[in-house]
Design a protein around this nucleic acid. Structure first.
Length: 544
DNA sequence: GCCGTTTTCGGCCCGACTGTTTTCAGTCG
């Protein structure tokens, strides 16, 4: 079944092929539409049925027609047409790091090179020597890029990138003459996967900061260094950009490098409309800098409240800010407990006392201790000796519960692969409170988001919470689905994932994901007080 | 190909860095 994911890939390929043809502006138009489709929080066919395709940002008359054609026939003939006009191997050449469509097109037009194989042969035969604009350095870079084709840097999970970034930030803070140091980029937006790290610092001695940074043991090579910016590659292949600005520009730089691209483009066009110019050094009216020291100043200069970093994607947040309808997003202090704790997997030997200590340290009121389902047996409910935290008991099952959890407070459904979603009318509220965990497990990230869609109907039929963890993509939900779930009336349950108590702090990354989903505290199950949970669960659970 | 509180036509974000240059084009984010 063709889906939105495939159409996104089609539009991206069309963009690349148009680039290779030397067409201006259209490539970006196709990519913009692809990004919009990717972030769509509802079914594309549904939007088309209502005749609202053109309400999607970046979709106009021509692209709406292509989308409808695709939904009808499963193909976009325009793709086949331009595919026949451009050798497919050129796509691989233009995707070599450091090279792009202009270079690939020149090699094709001037030397007849149609793919990486021919390029390698041409390099070996010195056919590029003397070609205008191709000096010895560029030819060496081309050879090097060609040698590691396919082995390019991969995006990595948020938690991994976060750990690396924390180490780098600490090292810079202690070793370099810096005033402020913060992460920016997609890591600050808490994207599920991160392609590279952006670090921003203020200092009066940038060159010294770069020296210290380059000498860190994690750094393998320095890719480039200028007066304000350095790019390095870590030994694990991750690319890190470090930028140093003056304090008066810190807010503008932080805003600028936090992105996303579409968010920034939207803001800058808004600035232009108001006779202003935005860049990484500030907001300017003519020569005069009217804002720049803080992000608040930058947004205020553009007539907007400060937009939380996690939702800066141009997914409607600028319009919402303009209208004063920005949601109050859930924040880490709102989380009052964890609901999916497996004592047997905590990684320490302390069991419940250890868990209780960690909970108190993090300021949690309660823990939901979860035990596997055991037929016919009522699990013993563990209780800590002292008062806090309060302990709730959950039973983990792989099948849809048909009745209240025996002797416990709530169900944790961990759907087995291939578990069909029940009809929305089935068991219903009487089956007890339900927390659906690990929903995305087994679903390749980005594979087919439509597969998760039927679960949304469940949310409309009964109270259900979907778990969001720091490990989105592998064990948890991504924020696009989480936003759909919130819009469908479901709750979210935030947690650190299946990790030792020492790593429970990671629940904060799940908070970031929930914020990306525009989740308010009211939509987060474990932002509710213990008393409220106890009351609502006592009314429905099995035991007296 | 999209888009519009100066526009339905004529724009399309903006700057850093590299390599090849002598004033700039390409790539990147």
């Amino acid at each position: 079944m063709p889906g939105t994911t495939e159409l996104v890939a089609i539009f991206r390929e069309i963009g690349d092929l148009l680039d290779l043809q030397g067409v201006r502006f259209k490539p970006e138009a196709y990519r913009r539409a692809a990004r919009s489709l990717e972030a769509l929080t509802e079914d594309l066919a549904g939007v088309a049925a209502r005749g609202e395709l053109r309400a999607i940002p970046g979709v106009g008359e021509a692209l709406a027609e292509k989308i409808e054609e695709y939904l009808r026939t499963g193909a976009v003939p325009f793709l086949d047409r331009i595919r026949s006009e451009v050798p497919p191997g050129l796509l691989e050449i233009m995707r070599l790091p450091g090279f792009g469509p202009k270079t690939a097109r020149r090699l094709w037009v001037e030397l007849g090179i149609e793919g990486p194989g021919e390029l390698a042969a041409a390099l070996a035969a010195h056919r590029l020597d003397g070609l205008a604009g191709f000096g010895p350095r560029k030819i060496a870079l081309l050879s090097a890029a060609l040698a590691q084709v396919g082995g390019g840097p991969k995006r990595r999970p948020l938690v991994d990138a976060w750990r690396v970034a924390e180490g780098l930030l600490a090292a810079i803070r202690t070793g370099a003459p810096v005033d402020r140091v913060e992460v920016a980029g997609s890591l600050r937006r808490r994207r599920e996967t991160v392609g590279d790290l952006d670090i921003l610092a203020t200092s009066t001695r940038p060159e010294r900061v770069f020296e210290v940074f380059s000498a860190l043991p994690e750094v393998r090579t320095v890719r480039m260094r200028g007066p304000t910016k350095e790019t390095v590659e870590l030994s694990d292949g991750l690319q890190v950009d470090l930028r140093v600005v003056e304090p008066a520009a810190f807010g503008a730089a932080l805003q600028y490098f936090t992105g996303s691209k579409d968010h920034n483009v939207h803001l800058r066009s808004r600035a232009r409309d108001r006779g202003l110019k935005v860049n990484e050094y500030g907001v300017f009216r003519g020569e005069e800098r009217v804002a720049g020291a803080t992000e608040d100043d930058v947004y205020a200069a553009l007539g907007l409240p400060t937009i939380p970093a996690e939702i800066r994607e141009d997914h409607g947040e600028i319009e919402a800010a303009e209208a004063g309808r920005l949601p109050t997003l859930v924040d880490a202090p709102d989380v009052r407990g964890l609901l999916h704790v497996h004592l047997e997997r905590l990684g320490g030997t302390g069991g419940l006392p250890d868990a209780a200590r960690a909970a108190r340290r993090l300021g949690f009121e309660y823990l939901g201790v979860v035990v596997p389902e055991a037929d016919g047996e009522v699990p013993a409910l563990p209780r800590p000796s002292s008062g806090a935290p309060r302990i709730f008991l959950g039973i983990e099952t792989a099948r849809f519960p048909t009745g209240p959890p025996p002797g416990a407070d709530f169900w944790v459904l961990r759907p087995a692969a291939g578990l069909a979603v029940p009809p929305a009318s089935a068991p219903g509220d009487a089956a007890g409170p339900l927390l659906v965990a690990h929903l995305a497990a087994g679903v390749d990230s980005g594979a087919e988001p439509d597969r998760l869609r039927p679960w949304l109907a469940l949310a409309a039929a009964r109270p259900v919470a979907f778990e969001v963890t720091a490990g989105a993509g592998s064990e948890g939900l991504d924020s696009t689905f989480a936003r759909q779930a919130v819009e469908a009336g479901a709750q979210l349950a935030l947690g650190p994932g299946d990790v030792p108590v020492a790593a429970w702090e990671r629940y904060r990354l799940a908070v970031g994901l929930a914020r990306r989903a525009w989740a308010a505290p009211e939509t987060v199950l474990n932002a509710r007080p213990a008393e409220e949970l106890a009351r609502s669960w006592a009314a429905r659970r099995g035991r007296g």
